[in-house]
Structure formats: structure tokens, C-alpha cells
Design a protein around this nucleic acid. Structure first.
Lengths: 333, 333
DNA sequence: CTGAAAGCGCTTACAG
DNA sequence: CTGAAAGCGCTTACAG
């Protein structure tokens, strides 16, 4: 492998000079610079980012740990982070915890050992401060993404409450009272917020908590059972709000099995939705998350934090867009 | 930051010994080891992977460049690579070229500078050997993923021809003759193979190339126009095979607009398909790619290549599974 | 069983 | 405008 020594010899200068023309860190006589550039060309020299990072104690790399790489929304966030990082000349180290606290802890460890300049973390559901506690005594910048918390870190996620409120209003305005919320695993912060907003919005519409319908469960089996029970009740729901894509798929399967027509037999809306929601029959009312922007905002916040570690933690909530479609009847004015 | 020097001092040993207990590279007196372990604990020492990598000239990291991080299939491949890499104790550096040769070249450069132990590359469409030529004089192991080529590297992709043949047989057996192939950008190796297989299979079914219907185009606008023209023809196709998810979406939109019913007015099949194909009405016949396995196989091949640079390049083709559903009529026996 | 020392490939004061 | 040299935090022969 070519190193600076070889380049310097060929150009007849010191390695200091090679380094400085490479990095533009001091004035170099134009003739000298040309010689160096030529030598670099001839030897097809490539800088060693590792050695450079070690000397500068800065790697120009960031880590990203997602809790569920299989979810389309996370795939989008990854793209957002990658694109912004690339535009900053920063390399992205990616890990997927797959909702496993152990894998999350190992990933944090591995990325910290690699001396990333900062870390973006979408935490696994239900894990306490475990992974984060690594950062308590640690100076590595951290940004929480999507899975937010009360901790004093920079955070980016979407606004979960307002869209649910709007959805509930949209449905109650059409006379729906028995609205079923498929809430999923409410240990996940995003899902918990959606559930809470539902409870409040329904109460505000005059439907007390005791009369509200919701399926909150830790796994898909429980969820399926909950949906089955709800749909098969003597007084089944006339509308469904699913709090995630997976939950929506589970509900739609049972709705199809029962031969229920949307929106006449049952209205249907989904938070986060399907990649091609417009191809469904009927088209599905969807709360579309700006997932790409969540990712790129996370990368931006991290860059700012790296540049200035003493700034106030920022908490950013991006607004989803509700796309009203046929599955919930006529769109609001 | 705690370094080995601090640990060594605290434990009253040399840094050699600390290094050896850390890596298990030589026998250490049990008492001594305990002292070192205790010192590591107390100082919450964490190894510096950069310094280690520099000394060993091995980073235990690999790079992955995908050509389109937005495609669900690529998201799955990323997951496959990540999971296998993690299980090997290898960190993944991810870049997305977004079908832009410039970004691809920059990513190759950045990852090489970072001294990744190897690289997995899904090349952008239509780029020549540009990105790959970096490897000609370079000893960094390279595995080609999904977007294969004639070059002498390890490669993993799916079998593209056989599923298309089967699909064509399935359709012609039902009497279809005017089958429209939405081929997309045939500069992409996968799409080119599907197109070629279609041409051959149709000819084998007695339909000469001159009478075959296909839309091959470089961008979505051209594709949309091609589909519009084909569907609006005097003798429109009675069946459609879409060669990718995006292409299928484009076709389905126009099919819905025209109010065509599947499979009666028009049969429909898709290569690579939608995340929740079973929720479509009717359910769509889909060639499901083992995308996750493509990713994990790529990571495995790369590990083997890193371990033994002189082995013969392997070319692996994973078989997709055809899921026959209502959109192409009754499934074959 | 253990330690002193060289060296991986850079950056960056320091000196001229 | 340029160079000699220290040092980033490790691993690994070499020596005892």
C-alpha cells in the first residue's frame, strides 16, 4: 500500500508537506504542490482514514442503530440519515437491534469502540436506560430518533397526538362511536402516544374511557386474538384505526376474511401505512410519516451537537400528513 | 478517555499484558489477569478499534453500497448483510448510491479510505466498470450483489430467467398470447435477464419476437407512456408481467383507471412484488425474491474471500418462489 | 509468565 | 515556505 512516505520521497519533499497539500492546511509553493500532486497521482496514493482519525481523534463517521430495519418507515429513516451524512462527508455505520436489547447493547459497544463521532439511536421497545446509560459518563454525542424519551438528549420524531385527534374527529363527525384502536405494543413510545391521544380525543368526543375499544398487546399473536374478539363482538366496531403498518395488515386480513366492506361495513385508517396505499381497494386513509426527513433531521442535529457539545438539547417533532381516502368515507372539508 | 496505559498502571503491569488479557493472545497468570480485569472494570476502559485496526491492518468492518436504498428488496438485502456481519463481529458501513454513478464512485473511495476489509456492491444501472476499476489494482475483496456482471468477482443474485419462463408458461397454458412485459430499464442486469427470458419463453410458446409486447424504458415517464399505449391499443394485452415493484405499481394504477378487472379482463403477475401482496384485491401472483438471503449470502461470500483471497470466485443464484394467486387465475397443478 | 520497544500512517506544534 | 520529530493507542516480535 502506498503511504505518505513513498509520495514524499517521489516528490522530494517531507511528509509534512504532503500532508499539508492533501489537507490544504498551510500554504505550499505552487511548484512544490504540483510535484506532490503528481506523485500522488503516480502512486495512486489513498489517504488512510484510520491513521488520520487516530491522530485527529475524530473519525468523520457516525453510528445509527435502528430497532427494526424491516419496517418500511425505518428503511426510509436510514436513507435520510445516509443521504445527509454523505453530503457532510461523513460515513455511516449501521446496526439493526431488531428489537433485541442485547443486540442493541452490543451495537452501542461496537460503535463506541469504533470511535464514531456521534450516534443516532432508535431504541428497542421496553428497554430501560440500559443502552443509553453508556452515554451518561461518556462524551459521545447522542441523538434519539423515532423512539423518544424523557432523557436530556437531542431527539427527532413525528407528532403522534395531533393526527390521531384529527382522525377521531373525522370519524366521530360521521357518527362513529365504536371506534377500535389497534394500539400494538404500548411500551413503544410512539405507539403509547398514539394510544393516549386516542383516549383523550374519544373522551373529548363524549365517549368515556370505559366505552372505548382498544387492542394493546405485546406480540402479534395477542394482537390477532384481540382483533378477532373485537370484530366478533355483539356490537362490533364501525371504524378501525391501526397504529402501524403491521397492525393494519393484521386487521385488514381479518376484515377481508369476514367479508366486511370498507367504508360501509367498517371505516379504516392507518398510521404510517403502506408503500402503495393508493393501490388498495378501497384506497386507504393514511397518516403518512415524513420518515426520510426524520432521518435527515437526526443527522443534522447530530452534526450540530458534534460541532457544539454545550448547546441546549433540541426536541424536534415533524408533522405527518393525513391523506384522506375512500376507506374512511368522504374527506373533511 | 481511558487507554491501556492507565489500565496497566492501575493493575501494576505492562501494557503488553493488558493487551494479551484483552485479546487472549497468550497465557497470563490468573492472579495477574484478575488484576487487569479489575482495572479495566474500574476505569471502564474500552478498546480503541481504530488503533487496533491500524496495528493489525484489519478493521473488522465491511462496506455495502446499494444502488437504491428506497426499494424494499434492497432494504431486505441490507438487513441480511447487517445481520450476518453482526454475527461475525463485523461492523457495517453503509452507503446508498441512489443510481448515481458519481455517488457510487465517491462511496467506493470513502470506504476504501476507511480500509474496510471488503466491499459488497450493488452497482448502479448503466455504469460501466468505473466503480469496479478501482479494484483492478487493489487487493480489497469485492462481492457483487444483485446487479451482477461478467467480471471475475464473487457474485450473489437471484435466478431471474426460470421464474419468468414459468410465468409465461402459466399464462400461455391458459390461452394468453398477448402478454405485456413491463421490463423497465434493461441496462439493469436483473431486468435485462428477465426481459431476455421473456423473449425466449414466448418464442418457445410459438409467439415470435415480432408479435411480443414489451415496455422497456429508462425512466418512469417513458414507462408510463409505454404502458398507456399498450393498454390502449386496438388489441390490448390480456396479461401483464411487471418486472419490479415500481413497474407493477405504475401498471396497476392504469389498470385501475381503466376499470379493468383482474384476472378476467387482464391477468397480472409481478416480479419482486409488494410487502403485503396478500392484501391486494385480488391477491397478486408474485415472484418473491429471497432478498434477505441474498444479503446474508453476500456477507458470507465476502467473509470467505477475506479469509482466502486465492479461492475461485463463486457465483450464487438464489431461487425466488412463485406465489400463484388470484390475479393470474387458477394456480398450476 | 512478563516487559521494553518498535512501528502501524498519519497530523501538528515547533523551529528555522 | 518547509522539515524533523513527537505522538495518537494499540499489537507483536524479541528478550529474559
Amino acid at each position: 500500500m502506498t503511504t505518505m512516505v513513498k509520495v514524499a520521497k517521489l516528490a522530494g519533499v517531507s511528509i509534512s508537506t504532503v500532508s499539508h497539500v492533501l489537507n490544504g492546511t498551510r500554504n505550499v509553493n505552487d511548484e512544490t504542490r504540483q510535484k506532490v500532486l503528481k506523485a500522488i497521482e503516480e502512486t495512486s496514493y489513498r489517504q488512510d482514514a484510520l491513521a488520520r482519525a487516530m491522530r485527529r481523534s475524530r473519525t468523520d463517521s457516525i453510528g445509527l442503530i435502528v430497532s427494526d430495519g424491516g419496517e418500511p418507515a425505518f428503511a426510509e429513516m436510514i436513507r435520510g440519515v445516509e443521504e445527509t451524512a454523505a453530503s457532510q462527508g461523513v460515513t455511516l455505520l449501521l446496526a439493526n437491534s431488531a428489537e433485541d436489547p442485547q443486540r442493541e447493547a452490543r451495537a452501542v459497544q461496537a460503535l463506541l469502540e469504533r470511535r464514531v463521532d456521534g450516534l443516532i439511536l432508535a431504541r428497542v421497545a421496553g428497554s430501560g436506560l440500559d443502552a443509553i446509560s453508556e452515554f451518561a459518563n461518556h462524551e459521545t454525542p447522542l441523538v434519539l430518533m423515532d423512539r423518544l424519551s424523557e432523557d436530556p438528549y437531542d431527539q427527532v420524531g413525528v407528532e403522534n397526538r395531533e393526527p390521531i385527534r384529527e382522525l377521531v374527529q373525522h370519524l366521530t363527525a360521521q357518527g362513529h362511536e365504536r371506534i377500535l384502536l389497534i394500539a400494538g405494543d404500548t411500551r413503544v413510545a410512539t405507539l403509547r402516544e398514539r394510544h393516549e391521544a386516542f383516549t383523550e380525543a374519544m373522551a373529548a368526543a363524549g365517549i368515556p374511557a370505559a366505552k372505548q375499544l382498544a387492542v394493546a398487546a405485546h406480540d402479534s399473536k395477542e394482537t390477532d386474538a384481540g382483533i378477532r374478539k373485537a370484530l366478533g363482538a355483539a356490537k362490533p366496531p364501525t371504524a378501525v384505526i391501526a397504529c402501524s403498518t403491521v397492525l393494519a395488515a393484521a386487521a385488514l386480513r381479518q376484515i377481508q376474511q369476514r367479508g366486511l366492506r370498507m367504508p360501509d361495513d367498517i371505516a379504516f385508517a392507518v398510521f404510517d401505512g403502506f408503500a402503495y396505499a393508493d393501490l388498495f381497494e378501497p384506497q386507504l386513509t393514511t397518516v403518512r410519516q415524513p420518515a426520510f426527513d426524520v432521518g435527515s433531521t437526526a443527522a443534522e442535529l447530530l452534526a450540530k451537537r458534534i460541532a457544539d457539545k454545550s448547546r441546549e438539547p433540541a426536541i424536534v417533532r415533524l408533522a405527518p400528513v393525513i391523506e384522506y381516502r375512500a376507506s374512511t368515507g368522504p374527506a373533511p372539508a
